[in-house]
Amino acid sequence: MKARIKFRKYGALRFIGHLDVMRFFQKVMRRADIPIAFTGGYSPHMIMSFASPLGIGLSSDGEYFDIELTEPIDSEDAVRRMNEACVEGIEVVSIRQIADEKKMTGMTILAGADYLINIKQGVLSDGWQERFHMFMEQPEIRIVKQTKRSEKKVDIRPMIWKWEIRGDRIFLQVASGSAQNLKPDLVMEAFVRFLDEKKDKTATVDRKAPRAEDFGYHRLEMYADMGVDGKRKLVTLESMGKEMRRAE
């Protein structure tokens, strides 16, 4: 049977990269004695797949990975055991049973994600909020996307589904996953370039390209798209699973 684990990542643990988080959770599974299934062969490894890697420096309230269990467990008990095996900076939120079909893994069905972007003091000068409105009101936002082999121009505006200024922060809901994927730092890069092009002296950063540390990125949640006929209907990856109760 399959189960989906949701966890948070914050504080010093932001500096642990994706591969190391995977290794960390493999060890958590052993320390917490979670009955996880292994692949066969000479070097068996745990059946574990992450919905979407989180870059170094980012914090998150909504990270996911799916595992295969060899026997049923109790969700509440398992969450407690896993958290006892974790350190400050990683907290397991839930473990829920999910459908067994392959096409339902977090990685496959991931469609969108919410981010909160923290504008650190002094990075943008006053009035940046209005400029961001102008930026988002453009009919299209073209950026150059680097791939391994080539560069291509893409319009990222359609990939930004929702946006909102929340005080010193920007909330973004963007396309995420295998079909379309937009990272929030690309949006901020485009915004800074927009300010530069406008030669806007009242609202510009003093550097040509903003660096990752200028903005704090926080992932809030990840979604699957359960809509039909091209109508988007986002549901959190967590809500697709159900709590497991130990049989009495």
Binding site: A12, L13, F15, I16, G17, D20, K27, R31, I56, A85, V87, E88, G89
Partner: peptide, 10 residues
């Protein structure tokens, strides 16, 4: 590898 300097390991 910033993880070299943050401590907090299990």
């Amino acid at each position: 590898k910033p993880a070299r300097y943050i401590g907090n390991e299990v």
